[in-house]
């Protein structure tokens, strides 16, 4: 069997004194697109941040491309989109400058070359933001900003994309553009782990869904048919439903 690109076994992690991951298993195979679902606070971001090394594990194992995380250094193979609404600093910066940061895993401490600038242009075209390359990021809307963060991850031409709610605040038309961009990446052999609240236009791309609830995996398999949080097993129901399947299917378009 081919080596999975992400392999998490029995991972536990705490934030503050609070256990947030309580032994999760998660694998992403090569070329696979896995959605990580779950209610607010279920530990999705913590799981993703643990995978990219930003939250220390208190137990369990974590491998990236078959290498234990601790010894993994090949970050140019990974593209990361953090969960963020605004990441604007105290000084103006253009879309192009922010996206160029996505090449740092390749250039390291060296200078940016022509290939780097070309990759930035391609990434901006993929997310449909090429016409805004020279605009300051502070002048973008939330959804446009999110698309810039996706372009930044794509600019590094990674083999594995790890995205925390990449579609947050992105309108449906742009979600379709991004779904197309993602399909393109997957066809070239990229693997994807992404946190979502609704599958939306990405639904046909997704091979598998992992659902978290209170830091535990409660579902790992086919993506839930229905779209929208109500349909997810991880959703905290404010009012009890006898049978969630009896709910009308939310397509996201008509609800």
């Amino acid at each position: 069997m081919e080596q999975p690109v992400i392999a998490v076994r029995g991972a536990t992690a705490s934030l503050g004194s609070r256990p947030v991951l309580r032994g999760i298993d998660l694998t992403v195979g090569r070329g696979e697109v896995v959605a990580l679902l779950g209610a607010n606070g279920s530990g999705k971001s913590t799981a993703v941040r643990a995978i990219v090394g930003q939250v220390p594990l208190t137990g369990g194992e974590l491998e990236l491309f078959g290498t234990p995380r601790r010894r993994f250094r090949d970050w140019k193979r990974v593209g990361y989109v953090p969960q963020r609404t605004t990441a604007a600093g105290g000084v103006p910066a253009t879309v192009r400058e922010v996206v160029l940061s996505g090449r740092l895993a390749r250039t390291k401490l060296g200078p940016a070359r022509r290939a780097d600038r070309e990759a930035v242009v391609r990434a901006l075209e993929l997310v449909g933001m090429a016409d805004r390359a020279g605009d300051p990021v502070a002048a973008l809307s939330g959804g446009q900003h999110q698309r810039v963060l996706i372009a930044r991850a794509l600019a590094g031409e990674p083999e594995l994309l790890i995205m925390d709610e990449p579609m947050a605040g992105v309108d449906l038309a742009s979600q379709e553009v991004l779904a197309e961009a993602l399909r393109d990446q997957v066809e070239r052999g990229a693997s994807v782990l992404l946190v979502l609240h609704e599958l939306g236009p990405l639904e046909p791309l997704i091979d598998r869904a992992v659902v978290l609830r209170d830091g535990c995996v409660v579902h790992d398999g086919a993506p839930p048919r229905a779209v929208g949080q109500h349909a997810l097993p991880g959703h905290d129901h404010v009012h009890p439903h006898a049978d969630p399947a009896a709910e009308p299917i939310r397509t996201g378009l008509l609800s």
Binding site: G53, Q54, W75, A93, S101, L104, K108
Partner: peptide, 14 residues
């Protein structure tokens, strides 16, 4: 620039 703009992202670039 990358570190001051988004430290977590910069760390994930290695």
């Amino acid at each position: 620039f990358a570190i001051c703009q988004d430290e977590e992202f910069a760390r994930v670039t290695g």
